[in-house]
Design a protein around this nucleic acid. Structure first.
Lengths: 156, 156
DNA sequence: TCTTATCTGACCTTATCTGACCATAGTTCC
DNA sequence: GGAACTATGGTCAGATAAGGTCAGATAAGA
């Protein structure tokens, strides 16, 4: 269903797509006015949708002439390989379910995996807890994700 | 034999039939109001009638702008029906690693999944034992496989 | 009567949205 | 240069708007 947050999110993404370098500069107040909401609603959207985990970078500046700069960091294959390295190294820390979901989102956005493949990965990674501890789950998830990524990166 | 649950069930099925892609998006509260019952009655109907075993998928989201999305899986193809049969047994008995591998082989042979997708599934399913017991692994594997199959059965 | 299916309501969790108050960066005026 | 003013953006608690769960009451069948 379409709520304010979703609308603002799509609007920003649309602007980002239209931008040649996947970066936009805008004002919080203006955006809030366009959607007829309080300015802090913009912060809500930014903090829930445009997170680093999802591949976005937000900078801002207060005061007169203040602004918001939103950038989308696109993953390329090399970056994924790097991330994979990290992931393998960090098997102890593991990865949360949400982090995994966000990561897969980035992969699909960057066309590194298809939508269907992305869903497949998510399905695999979303194991239900049952008697397992979160500690253990995190690490299992990381291992599995790493293995799946390896497969996807090696061919094609 | 027309009770509330049955009426709600038919109503939803009717909407699904009218939908071009066999998927609908609605609100629990609204539906409850239409049938003048408590919202939780909707959950009852969903959990007894629109189960994966019966070929449906239900997603939902809470909060402002929350929704229920109900999808009917395309069960026309014989192959899919067969898969569902297999899937049903799967979760109870669990599945060994080799069985899983073989199963995926059949899926690729039948062109239900691509080679790449098949590898992905295998990668996910081949979890290393570590401290887990085989009994537990079998069931974890089965559940995961079932979840992935569910995804694949969705009309991409 | 006994069992199973329905149905309800109280209580819980999550997502969204607002407004009051805070922090920072220019601008103006002395 | 500094004080006062103005223009932004940031934070956070609390209100609002959904959907989820579960125990227990009720109804329908066997």
């Amino acid at each position: 269903m379409s709520n304010l947050a979703n609308n603002i999110e799509s609007y920003i993404k649309c602007l980002l797509n239209a931008s040649p370098n996947a970066a936009i500069l805008l004002q919080r107040k203006e955006l809030a006015e366009r959607f007829q909401c309080v300015p802090s609603q913009i912060n809500y959207v930014l903090s829930t949708r445009f997170t680093p985990e999802r591949g976005y970078l937000v900078e801002s500046r207060r005061g007169g002439g203040g602004y918001l700069r939103i950038r989308r960091l696109d993953l390329n294959r090399d970056k994924v390989v790097q991330l994979l390295e990290m992931l393998r190294g960090l098997v102890e820390d593991g990865i949360s379910f949400q982090e995994a979901i966000d990561f897969v989102g980035r992969l699909t956005d960057a066309r590194i995996v298809t939508r269907r493949e992305g869903q497949l990965i998510k399905a695999a990674v979303c194991q239900d807890a049952r008697q397992m501890e979160e500690e253990f789950l995190r690490s299992t998830r990381a291992i599995m994700l790493a293995r799946m990524l390896e497969i996807l990166l090696q061919d094609s």
